[in-house]
Design a binder for these strands. Structure first.
Length: 293
DNA sequence: GGGCAGGTCTAAG
DNA sequence: CTTAGACCTGCC
C-alpha cells in the first residue's frame, strides 16, 4: 500500500489508504475508546494520544497529529503494513465468507495496548458496547491522567495497573463495572505484582492463552480477544454469542452445542488467519442480526 | 415490568 | 470434566 502523506495545518492528509473504513474498524467490537463526532469523523484515544480521523472524497484527514506520531504510532496501530486484500482472499473460503469480507471490507485489526485490552474485555463480559464504552471512559476520567483536549473535550489515558490496583471496590463500582469489579481489582493487583504482560506477549498462542486465563475474569473468549486485539496473535477464534449463532446457523446447524468445539471449528476453517476470519464473520453476523431469534 | 446483553466463576453431578 | 445458576445494570 503506497501512501501519499501531506502535512496540513490540522494534521495530515493521507491518500492511498485501502481496505480502510472508519465505521468498519471502530464499530466491529474490537475497540472501545472511540467517539463518533457530528461531522461523521471518529476521535480515538490510544497510546496517550488523541487522534481524529475524517474521511474526505479521496483521502483521510488525520487531525491532531503529525508525521512523527503517524510513523511511530498510527501506522502500526492501524496495521497498515498488512495487505488486507490478501487476508480477505484467504479467509473467503466459501460464499458466506465472501459476503462477510465484502460487507466488512474496511476492517483492520487494531494493534492495541495489552493491559488496556485485558481490563476492557473483562468489562465486556455479558455487557453491551455502549455500556462498556461508558465504563471505560469513566474509569479513565476518574483514575487516568489528562492527556489533552480536542475540539473542546478533555481526554484521559486509561489508568495503569499501578493506578488501578489501589482503588476501592466501591469507587470502581461507581464507574459501572458491576459484578466484574473484583475481577478487575484482582487482575490489576496480579499484573502489578507479577509484571509479566510483556512476557505473555512473547509466548506462543496456546501458552499465552493459558497464562491469561490465570487472571480473574478472563476466560476462553476474553483471553482470545486480548490475544487478538492486544497481543498480535492472529491464530485465535474468539467465540461470543454472535459467532456462536452464525456458525451454528450457517455451518454446524445444531450439531455442535459446545463453545470449545465451535472454536475448534473456526480454527479448522481459518488456521493462522482465524482472528481475521472471526472479525469479518462477527461484524457481518452482528450488523445483519444473523441467528438472532 | 420481565427479559436479556459481545462470559466467567462457582458449586454440584 | 461437564453443566446449571448467579452475577449488576441499562435499555427495550
Amino acid at each position: 500500500m503506497k501512501l501519499y502523506i501531506e502535512e496540513i495545518k490540522s494534521g495530515l492528509k493521507i491518500k492511498g489508504l485501502v481496505d480502510f473504513e472508519l465505521k468498519n474498524i471502530f464499530e466491529c467490537g474490537q475497540c472501545f475508546r472511540w467517539y463518533k463526532e457530528e461531522d461523521e469523523s471518529y476521535t480515538v484515544i490510544a497510546f496517550g494520544k488523541i487522534l481524529n480521523i475524517k474521511k474526505e472524497l479521496d483521502s483521510f484527514i488525520f487531525n491532531n497529529t503529525n508525521k512523527r506520531d503517524f510513523e511511530d504510532i498510527w501506522y502500526n496501530y492501524f496495521d497498515l503494513d498488512r495487505d488486507y486484500s490478501e487476508i480477505k482472499r484467504v479467509v473467503s473460503v466459501d460464499n458466506i465468507m465472501k459476503e462477510a469480507t465484502e460487507f466488512g471490507s474496511g476492517i483492520r485489526i487494531l494493534k492495541q495496548e495489552p493491559w488496556e485490552m485485558m481490563i476492557s474485555f473483562i468489562i465486556s463480559a455479558r455487557n453491551s458496547i455502549p455500556n462498556i464504552k461508558k465504563t471505560i471512559e469513566k474509569i479513565s476520567q476518574a483514575f487516568g491522567k489528562k492527556i489533552g483536549e480536542y475540539n473542546g473535550v478533555e481526554y484521559f489515558s486509561f489508568p495503569t495497573a499501578k493506578e488501578l490496583k489501589v482503588i476501592s471496590e466501591e469507587e470502581l463500582k461507581e464507574c459501572g463495572t458491576s459484578f466484574r469489579t473484583k475481577y478487575i481489582l484482582s487482575t490489576a493487583k496480579k499484573v502489578f505484582e507479577t509484571d509479566n504482560i510483556d512476557l505473555i506477549c512473547t509466548q506462543e498462542t496456546k501458552e499465552a492463552r493459558e497464562s491469561l486465563m490465570e487472571f480473574s475474569g478472563i476466560g476462553p473468549k476474553v483471553s482470545d480477544c486480548i490475544l487478538l486485539f492486544g497481543m498480535r496473535k492472529y491464530d485465535v477464534f474468539p467465540v461470543d454469542v454472535w459467532v456462536y449463532r452464525v456458525i451454528d446457523e450457517v455451518y454446524t446447524k445444531g450439531e455442535i452445542k459446545n463453545l470449545e468445539k465451535i472454536r475448534e471449528y473456526g480454527i479448522n476453517m481459518f488456521g493462522g488467519y482465524s482472528g481475521f476470519g472471526q472479525q469479518y464473520l462477527f461484524y457481518y453476523a452482528r450488523e445483519k442480526g444473523i441467528g438472532k431469534k
